[in-house]
């Protein structure tokens, strides 16, 4: 007779030596309600090498009784998901240890640097200012250092005639100017499509310059003109009379 043979999930491992608990699910016909229902049964299964891990899917096979509750052995590991998880966990532990050590060290280094920091942009500029105003407290060493700084930032006169540091706040100013340009362009577009003869002629001239069909739909024409307004150079615009 063929041996009993099941496929099941390893649900418990590591509690007994060379033994795992395997859950086997089967359909069983219930004669009282005439319906097949799921039946679950846990088996203690022999695992000689202690290889299986929780979450593995294994095929188990009947053997001679190995102990009072154990008469199955692992025949084959179908899916080694549990083993893979265990591997990932091990890897993650090592990786995090290394990562955390590095990050903590860099944090402490940054803190140290901040305490020992002698030169920042503002401090450099203050020094340059001192030199430019001819302060008498400076030693010869400092003068050479500051002259080097002057060269580094490209400062020739005081106050300098060009921006030296880029502030984060400039981003907002730039955003506002961009918005202004966009609004003026949209105004121009609306004006070109207001239906007057003169503006219509201008639109036609733009389309002719772009080699596009002047009889196409109004929305298409509008998109083409919008693109022309944003991309083309000033000379091109002057050519069509804008």
């Amino acid at each position: 007779m063929a041996r009993q043979n099941f496929i099941g999930l390893v649900v418990s491992q590591g509690k007994m030596d060379k033994t795992v608990k395997v859950r086997v699910e089967q359909m069983a016909y219930n004669t009282k309600i005439h319906k097949s229902l799921f039946k679950r049964k846990n088996y203690l299964v022999h695992d000689e090498g202690n290889i299986c891990k929780e979450g593995d899917i294994v095929r188990i096979e009947a053997t001679r009784p190995l102990s009072s509750r154990k008469h199955f052995a692992v025949a084959e590991i179908k899916k080694n998901k549990g083993q893979q998880f265990a591997k990932y966990e091990e890897e993650a532990t090592l990786k995090i240890q290394k990562e955390e050590r590095e990050k903590t060290n860099s944090f402490l280094q940054r803190r140290e640097d901040k305490i020992n920091q002698k030169s920042s942009i503002v401090q450099d500029l203050k020094d340059i200012e001192k030199l430019c105003h001819g302060s008498s407290e400076l030693t010869a060493e400092e003068v050479t250092r500051i002259t080097q700084l002057k060269e580094k930032y490209g400062v020739t006169t005081w106050p300098p005639n060009k921006p030296i540091v880029d502030l984060d706040i400039r981003y907002l100013a730039q955003k506002i100017t961009d918005l202004r340009v966009k609004i003026s362009r949209d105004d121009k577009l609306v004006e070109l499509f207001d239906g007057t003869k003169a503006n219509e002629e201008k639109v036609n001239r733009i389309l002719a310059k772009l080699n596009k069909d002047p009889t196409s739909k109004r929305s298409i024409k509008k998109n083409l003109v919008r693109k022309f307004l944003s991309d083309s150079s000033i000379e091109d615009k002057a050519e069509v009379g804008l």
Partner: peptide
């Protein structure tokens, strides 16, 4: 993504 999961819970 089990690999990332184990990294995240460890962290």
């Amino acid at each position: 993504d089990p690999q990332r999961y184990f990294w995240a819970i460890r962290k």
